[in-house]
């Protein structure tokens, strides 16, 4: 899956579930989801559940950290990394 496709899926999920204000409609890829007030502690669990089911990856407890999940860019890089690792193992 290309990074563009990953990003569009993630953007759609975030738009449907976290973005209610028009001001946030075109969220910058590097913007912090925490600072923008878009996710709270439940939001993190929703996000992880989505990543696991939609991208067929497993998110380890130690990976649930802002470095991996606190912006769209970070999530894309994280998911791409996980998928790359999975496909290289499969190969």
């Amino acid at each position: 899956m290309s990074n563009t496709e990953i990003e569009s899926r993630i953007r759609r999920f975030i738009d449907e579930n976290f973005i209610f204000s028009e001001d946030d409609a075109n969220l910058d890829g590097a913007a912090s989801l925490l600072d923008a007030g878009l996710v709270d502690s439940t939001g993190i669990l929703e996000l992880v559940t989505f990543l696991e089911s939609d991208f067929a990856i497993q998110v380890a407890d130690a990976e649930i950290i802002p470095d991996n999940l606190d912006s769209i860019d970070a999530i894309v890089a994280y998911v791409a990394g996980k998928q790359g690792a999975a496909s290289s193992v499969a190969a």
Partner: peptide, 18 residues
């Protein structure tokens, strides 16, 4: 609070560190 269970330390710090 169920939502705070299984939350990593760095996220917990991020929530309470605001």
């Amino acid at each position: 609070l169920p939502a705070l269970k299984g939350q990593s330390q760095s996220y917990r710090s991020a929530f309470f560190g605001a």
